[in-house]
Design a binder for these strands. Structure first.
Length: 557
DNA sequence: CGGGCCTATAAAT
DNA sequence: TATAGGCCCG
C-alpha cells in the first residue's frame, strides 16, 4: 500500500505531535484506515462485525475532543489499475479463510485469521455514514480514491490537513498530512514543503521518485527502491531512465507516464459545484483510455448521489436515500483548550534545562514543586522550541528523585534519548544521581485476548478519561519457559514480558525503590498475523542502564 | 569485504 | 511493521 519505503525515507522531515495543536482546524480523514482497523478488532474479538460502529465512533470522538472539525472521506469505486491488485489480495484472503476453516483450529485463531482477511463492504461504509450523521459530522464518498479526494479538498480549502495511514497523500500533493495517528491523538506530521525543501526536489520530481519506487498502480523495477529512485530524479541524466526501461522493459516507460497522469488528473468530487472534476485541470482532454484509468466522469446527479452515499460503491446501483451533505455547521461544541492560554515554565530533562509551557487552567490545579510529565508534545513559537506539558503528575513527597539543585520547580526527569553512555568515564560523579529512563517494548501482548482486553481498557482510560494508567514489572520465577522472566502489567494485570536478553539487567534493580515504570505509549496496529494493541513502557532507574540495554532500547520507538 | 539498499517473510517469557 | 539475508557496488 502506498509508496514503497517512502515514510521511513522522509521521516527526518516529520515531527511527532498531537492533534491538539490543530485545534480549530478541519481534518480530512481517510475513513478506510479506521474502518479497516475497526473491522479487524471486531472480527478478532467477536467473530462478527458488530463492533465496527462503536470503534469508528470512538475514533471520531478523539478527533472532536482534540478540538478539530472532522470531515470524513470514504472510498468510492475501485480504479481499473487497481483491479488487478485487488484480485491478488482476494486470492490471499481466500487462502486465509480456508485456513480458518480447518478443523484443528480454535475459535480464537479462526477469528484472528478472519480478521486478517477482513475487507470493507459498502454496508460497512453505510454504518459509518450513519454515525457521521448522528454526530453532525461532514462526510463525502469519493468517486474513486480517497487520497485523491482529500488532495482536492485540501487544495480547495475544504480542509486544512489530511489524516491517513499511507503515504499516497503526499504524492497527490497534499501539503499537510498526519499519519500513524494513535488514539491518544499522537502521530507523525508531514509538511510537503519541508520534504521537498529537504530533498531539494520539485513536486513533479518527488512524484516521479515515488512512482519509480513502486506504488499501487505500478510495481517497481526489481532492484530499484526509494534511494535509487531519488538518485534517478535528482541527476535526471536520462541514463537512469534508460536503465529502468532496460530492466523493466519498454512497457514500463509507457505505464510510468500513465501513472503520472493518474496521480495528477484523477477524477474527484468538487464540493463547490457538486460534480466530478479532474484533481488538476487538464490542458487538453485526456484520451479515452487514459481517462478510463483516471476514473470516468460521473453524470452530475449520479455524482451527487455517490457523494452522499446513495450509490453502492461495489455495484454502482442506487440503494440509499440520503439527501444532502451535512451543511457547514459552526461547531461551537466543546473544543477543549481552545480558549486556554499557555504559561511558560521550566522543564528539566535530566541535566538539561529546556523551555516548557503548560496550560493556564492546568496551573490553577498545581502547586510549585516537582512533577512528572505524562503527556507532552513539541511546538515552535517564534522559532523557539517549547515542550507543551499537557499532563503533570505530582511527585510523591517521599520521592527518591534527587534533582540535585532542588530549587527548580521542574518537571520530567528523564534523560534525553541520545544521552551518551560511551563517554561515561568522563562523567565521574553525577551518574549515581541520575535517573536514566529508557523505553522498553513489551513483548507477547497479542498472546491472549485477555491481555488485549486489558490494553484496550487502558487505552480507553487514557483517551476518554485522560486517566493515568499504571504499569509495573515483576519477576515470574515460576514461569515454565524462563525462570528469569520479568512480566509487565498495566493497571496490575499481566500484559506481557520484557525481552529475555534484557531480563538479566532488569533483575538486579527490580525491587529497588528508585525503579520507576510508566506507560510510554499504547498503540494499535494491524500487521502480519496480529491485530491489536501493543505497549511500550518507560523504565527509569538510578544510575545508568547497561550499554546493551541502551542499544536494545534504541530500536524501540 | 563492508555497507547500503532492496526484498521477502513472519513472533513471544 | 520489523528484520534478516542476499545482492550490488565501491
Amino acid at each position: 500500500m502506498g509508496i514503497n519505503g517512502l515514510l521511513p525515507f522522509v521521516k527526518k522531515y516529520s515531527k511527532e505531535c498531537n492533534l491538539r495543536i490543530f485545534s480549530g482546524q478541519t481534518a480530512a480523514i481517510d475513513a478506510s484506515c479506521w474502518i479497516h482497523k475497526a473491522l479487524c478488532v471486531s472480527i478478532d474479538r467477536t467473530g462478527s462485525r458488530e463492533r465496527l460502529g462503536g470503534i469508528f465512533e470512538a475514533h471520531l470522538r478523539i478527533v472532536k475532543k482534540s478540538g478539530l472539525i472532522p470531515f470524513v472521506v470514504f472510498d468510492g469505486f475501485a480504479l481499473p489499475e487497481k483491479a488487478s491488485e485487488h484480485e491478488g489480495q482476494q486470492i490471499a484472503r481466500e487462502k486465509i479463510l480456508k485456513q480458518a476453516e480447518k478443523p484443528d483450529i480454535s475459535k480464537s485463531e479462526a477469528n484472528k485469521l478472519q480478521s486478517r482477511a477482513a475487507s470493507m463492504t459498502f454496508e460497512d461504509i453505510v454504518v459509518c455514514i450513519n454515525i457521521c450523521l448522528a454526530h453532525n459530522v461532514k462526510y463525502v464518498v469519493s468517486p474513486y480514491e480517497t487520497d485523491a479526494q482529500i488532495a482536492h479538498m485540501l487544495l480547495n480549502g475544504h480542509a486544512d490537513f489530511g489524516i491517513t495511514e499511507d503515504s499516497d497523500l503526499l504524492v497527490y500533493g497534499c501539503k499537510k498530512v498526519m499519519v500513524k495517528l494513535n488514539l491518544s491523538g499522537d502521530g507523525e506530521y508531514f509538511q510537503l514543503a519541508e520534504i521537498l525543501g529537504g530533498l531539494n526536489l520539485s513536486q513533479k520530481q518527488f512524484q516521479q521518485m515515488c512512482i519509480a519506487a513502486g506504488c499501487d498502480y505500478l510495481t517497481n523495477v526489481k532492484g530499484v527502491g526509494i534511494h535509487t529512485a531519488f538518485r534517478f530524479v535528482k541527476h535526471s541524466t536520462k541514463d537512469l531512465l534508460e536503465l529502468l526501461v532496460k530492466k523493466g522493459g519498454s512497457e514500463y516507460k509507457n505505464c510510468f507516464s500513465k501513472v503520472e497522469t493518474v496521480f495528477k488528473h484523477q477524477t474527484v468530487f468538487d464540493l463547490n459545484t457538486n460534480s466530478t472534476v479532474p484533481l488538476e485541470k487538464c490542458e487538453v482532454d485526456l484520451s479515452e483510455d487514459v481517462q478510463y484509468l483516471c476514473g470516468n466522469k460521473l453524470a452530475d446527479g449520479y455524482a451527487n448521489d455517490m457523494a452522499v452515499g446513495n450509490i453502492n460503491t461495489k455495484s454502482g446501483e442506487k440503494v440509499n436515500g440520503y439527501s444532502n451533505l451535512v451543511k457547514d455547521q459552526a461547531t461551537g461544541e466543546q473544543s477543549g483548550h481552545e480558549n486556554s492560554e499557555l504559561i511558560a515554565c521550566t522543564q528539566l530533562k535530566g541535566t538539561e534545562v529546556l523551555k516548557g509551557v503548560i496550560l493556564k487552567d492546568e496551573l490553577a490545579n498545581i502547586q510549585p514543586g516537582i512533577f512528572t510529565c505524562t503527556s507532552h508534545c513539541e511546538i515552535v513559537i517564534n522559532c523557539e522550541k517549547y515542550t507543551v506539558l499537557w499532563k503533570l503528575v505530582p511527585e510523591k513527597a517521599t520521592s527518591r528523585r534527587s534533582v540535585s539543585s532542588g530549587s527548580d520547580p521542574s518537571v520530567s526527569n528523564t534523560l534525553p534519548d541520545d544521552y551518551r553512555l560511551e563517554d561515561s568515564e568522563d562523567l565521574v560523579q553525577p551518574i549515581e544521581n541520575i535517573d536514566h529512563c529508557l523505553p522498553f517494548k513489551v513483548l507477547g501482548t497479542y498472546h491472549t485476548v485477555d491481555r488485549q482486553n486489558v490494553l484496550e481498557r487502558a487505552f480507553t482510560y487514557l483517551e476518554e478519561h485522560n486517566r493515568h494508567v499504571f504499569a509495573k514489572i515483576e519477576a515470574e520465577p515460576d514461569n515454565p519457559y524462563d525462570k528469569n522472566a520479568v512480566m509487565s502489567s498495566s493497571d496490575y494485570e499481566k500484559v506481557g514480558y520484557i525481552a529475555k536478553e534484557l531480563t538479566q539487567y532488569v533483575h538486579p534493580v527490580l525491587y529497588d525503590k528508585s525503579l520507576d515504570v510508566s506507560v510510554k505509549k499504547i498503540r494499535f496496529c494491524t500487521t502480519y498475523c496480529m491485530v491489536g494493541y501493543y505497549l511500550t513502557i518507560n523504565i527509569s532507574k538510578k544510575g545508568l542502564w547497561d550499554k546493551q540495554v541502551i542499544s536494545a532500547s534504541k530500536r524501540v520507538n
